[in-house]
């Protein structure tokens, strides 16, 4: 039985806020919603239970999207959330930042910033070579990558330079510091994946071990 609750949002940027006693908390500001329920999937029709939510108003829709949405708001991003509580939702229902309260833990999924083709030092924290002692061209080199004639090949999966970033990443158990329901803003402690204006999925933390141990900040 899945009771997952999630919302789509947009990263606005980072800032810091002060608690009443003067502590500083680094926060990421997220424009969370409004999202609309755009489809309800049931075991009977689709083989599983889920809701589809949409976020971000756009002017242009493909004909396929327009047909799918019908009279619902023209949303840019669609995302499916597996949940068995489908009878709690109706088509077109609005999901907004009021889903969360201060102190909740959330998991946030986004697409990390692309770093292009990155070397081993940046990508895997290799130490690189010496800068001095005549090693003028080995500063950021990876070092040895294998043996010689035996086995005569490089083992698969060896960490080397390559494309870095621009992949889906999730941070778990981020604490909600502040919720502004009027403007649909959620302030989450710490950093979240991706660039400003990137699409994020926030879901209530479901790995409950951390959630049970968690003691909310005293404000």
């Amino acid at each position: 039985m899945s009771t997952k609750q999630a919302i789509l949002g947009k990263k606005v940027g980072m800032t810091r806020i002060f608690t009443d006693n003067g502590e500083v908390i680094p926060v990421t500001v997220i424009q969370a919603g409004p999202c609309y329920v755009t489809q309800i999937k049931t075991v009977a029709t689709d083989g599983y239970n889920a809701i589809q939510i949409g976020f971000g108003i756009t002017k242009r829709l493909s004909k396929g999207e327009a047909g799918h949405l019908g009279t619902l708001p023209k949303v840019r991003n669609l995302k499916e959330v597996r949940t068995d509580d489908i009878d709690k939702y109706t088509l077109g229902q609005v999901i907004d930042a009021s889903l969360f309260t201060v102190g909740d833990l959330v998991d946030i999924t986004g697409t990390s910033k692309g770093k292009g083709f990155a070397g081993g030092v940046k990508r895997y924290h290799f130490r690189g070579g010496p800068k001095t002692h005549g090693a003028s061209d080995r500063t950021r080199a990876p070092g040895a990558i294998g043996s010689g004639t035996t086995p005569g090949r490089i083992v698969k999966g060896l960490r080397m330079a390559g494309h870095m970033g621009n992949v889906q990443r999730t941070v778990l158990n981020q604490e909600i510091v502040k919720v502004d329901i009027e403007r649909n803003l959620v302030l989450v402690k710490g950093a979240v994946p991706g660039a400003t204006n990137g699409l994020l999925v926030m879901r209530k933390a479901h790995k409950t071990g951390a959630a049970k141990r968690h003691k909310p900040l005293q404000d």
Binding site: V12, G13, T15, I17, F18, V29, Q31, R183, L185, L187, T196, N197
Partner: peptide, 11 residues
């Protein structure tokens, strides 16, 4: 968007 961040700053 930075307006939102500015609006969160204390007086």
């Amino acid at each position: 968007m930075t307006d939102i961040i500015q609006s969160l700053a204390p007086q």
